Each structure stands twice: as C-alpha cells, then as structure tokens.
Amino acid sequence: MPAFVPADAAGLLLRSESDQLEFLSATSPRTTELELYQAQRDEGPCVDVVRSGERVEALGEDQVTGRWPTVGPAIIEAGFSSVFAFPLHWHGRAIGGLNLFAVSEEPLSEDSRQLGQTFADVAALVIVQPQHVDESDLLGNLRRALEGRVVVEQAKGVLAYQLDIDMAAAYDELLRRSERDSTSLTAAAAATIDEARRH
C-alpha cells in the first residue's frame, strides 16, 4: 500500500455484534498495539470513523495528541506523526475502520484519499461477503483504483507541460477542473488527457 498511498503502516478494526471494536489485522507489531489500544480505550481514529462514518485525518503531534488525548501520545511514541482513517462502509453503515499511519506530516493528496477509501471499500466487501467475492472482481476493483491514480499523474504531466507550471500547480489545476465540472478527479484527469490527444 505505501507504493500507492504514502503511509508507513496500516491497521483494521471492526465493529462487533455487541457494537464494540475488535482488532482484525495490522502490518506490524507496533501497529497491532495501537489498534488494540484504540479498542481498549474507545478512542482514536478508527473509533471516530466508525462513529461518524466519515474520513479522519490528523497531521503532526499537536493535532494527533489534541484530538486523542490518550491514544494520540501512543501514536506519536510509536514513531508516527500523522494518521489517516477511512470507514469500511456496508449498506450505509460504518462496520469498521482502516487506519493508515505515516512518519511524515504531509497531507494526503485527493487521489490518495480516494485510493485509501477504495482499499477500505474492498476490505469491507471481503469481510462481509467473502464467499461471494471472486478474486478477479477484487483484482479488478484494485486495478481500476490504481489505474485512476496513474491517469491523474499523467494528467498532471500534461497540464505541467501545457501551462508551463510545476506538478503541484498542475494538481491544483486538476482539482479546479474537477470542481468546475462537478466530476471525480479521475474523470477530470481522463478528460484532460483526451483533450490533449485531440489537439
């Protein structure tokens, strides 16, 4: 996942039938400890996303410890400076949360946020209906998500060349086009590439 979303570790918590959060998986022992600590203390990014059903982000020690006075210091002590959490949705309800921990304090780009949510959505599907999920369907979902990221990067390159701007400014322009046309970032990127090919 770090190759596609700039995070250094990940963990999953699920809502149980008794409405308690239970640990499911993590990428490292220290991340496992953080996930278990959240469940025990009923505090943290996964707890928040399950309650609200909305994505949660905290960048830097002040935000992390300010938002979660008990769990936040443990996140910082584990060597992470930022955390991004995505809800696992099923039929309009958050059944769990995917936590991404990062050493840096850099925010996620919009395409990384979309990709993180895609991973969470696929995880929810696998958890809830494993017997109905074909491997090719899963690979297809992930492939589409990754292809979307590639399209965004290609469109940024096109805009940088056309407008003689750097990649950060090209990304801002792509966001502006997405908002202007009320479409997704990937769709705006595809339209930008198609337009360039026609000219």
Rank of each mutant, 00 (worst) to 15 (best):
L12G: 07
S184A: 03
G66I: 05
G53Q: 05
S184K: 03
D19A: 13
T186E: 03
V50H: 10
L185E: 06
V151F: 12
D166W: 05
Q131D: 15
R197M: 10
T32D: 08
L100D: 09
V122C: 14
E135Y: 09
F80I: 10
A3G: 09
S16D: 15
R197H: 09
A145M: 00
S52D: 11
A10P: 05
I127R: 13
D48L: 13
L59Q: 07
E179P: 00
E43Y: 07
Q63A: 13
L115I: 04
A155R: 12
L138Y: 09
V126Q: 12
G72H: 13
Q20S: 12
L185F: 08
E54L: 07
R197N: 06
F80C: 06
S178G: 01
D164S: 00
R41C: 09
P130K: 13
A191C: 02
D134V: 14
I76N: 04
Q162P: 02
A145E: 00
Q40T: 15
A191K: 11
I127W: 12
K156P: 10
G44R: 01
G157I: 12
V47S: 12
T118P: 05
P69S: 01
V56K: 03
E110F: 02
E173P: 00
A160M: 01
R149S: 14
A74E: 15
V5K: 11
F4L: 14
A3M: 09
L108Q: 00
